[in-house]
């Protein structure tokens, strides 16, 4: 079957088996290997991309269901020459060790900063109406991205730094 996707602003038509995940389409068909396959079961977050602007696990998306949708991957938010504010902050704060989870962490954090600026609540928000970007909030909102090297404190520092830059 055929599916058309806009990935990082560019339209692609891919031919695929109905079983194809969006993750495999990105990595194997479009050769966008910045998005990582960790668990392939929605548990680790390494495959996080933005789907029509919202962060999702691309391993739990069937490509067939996303005809006409827009996808943004880590390749779409910055380049080695022009890093995004979050990418810069992860380098600055050393927000990784092995780096395998980093693209997913950065895609997830990119969406998270927007969500909190739009007032989206979390389970740990004291007040569902006015969430604030505290360390506790960041830990809760990033819980879908595992880091087996456990660089979490530095990841949160990097996100806090990027958030200050953008304000």
């Amino acid at each position: 079957m055929k599916t058309t996707l806009t990935v990082n602003g560019e339209a692609h038509e891919v031919t695929h088996d109905p079983r194809r995940s969006l993750l495999d389409t990105l990595r194997d068909d479009l050769r966008l290997t910045g998005t990582k396959k960790g668990c392939d079961h929605g548990q680790c977050g390494a495959c996080t991309v933005l789907l029509n602007g919202e962060r999702v696990n691309s391993c739990l998306c069937l490509t067939a269901m996303h005809d006409g949708d827009e996808v943004t991957t880590i390749e779409g938010i910055g380049s080695p020459e022009r890093l995004s504010a979050l990418q810069k902050a992860f380098v600055e704060k050393d927000g990784y060790q092995c780096g395998f989870c980093t693209p997913g962490q950065i895609m997830s954090a990119t969406a998270m900063l927007r969500e909190i600026s739009e007032g989206a609540p979390s389970y740990v928000s004291d007040d569902l109406e006015v969430p604030k970007l505290t360390d506790t909030e960041m830990a809760e909102r990033m819980s879908g991205n595992l880091c087996r090297c456990s660089a979490y404190p530095l990841i949160r520092e990097a996100i806090a730094m990027a958030s200050e830059v953008s304000q």
């Binding site: 999702v56 696990n57 389970y123 569902l128 109406e129 879908g144 991205n145």
Partner: peptide
């Protein structure tokens, strides 16, 4: 929902991750 049924907001937010809840 946040105003009238905040229990529902809290319960949903207690489950899964943002990535999962977005789908």
């Amino acid at each position: 929902v946040r105003a009238g049924w905040p229990l529902l907001s809290r319960a949903i937010l207690a489950g899964a991750s943002v990535q999962i809840r977005n789908k």
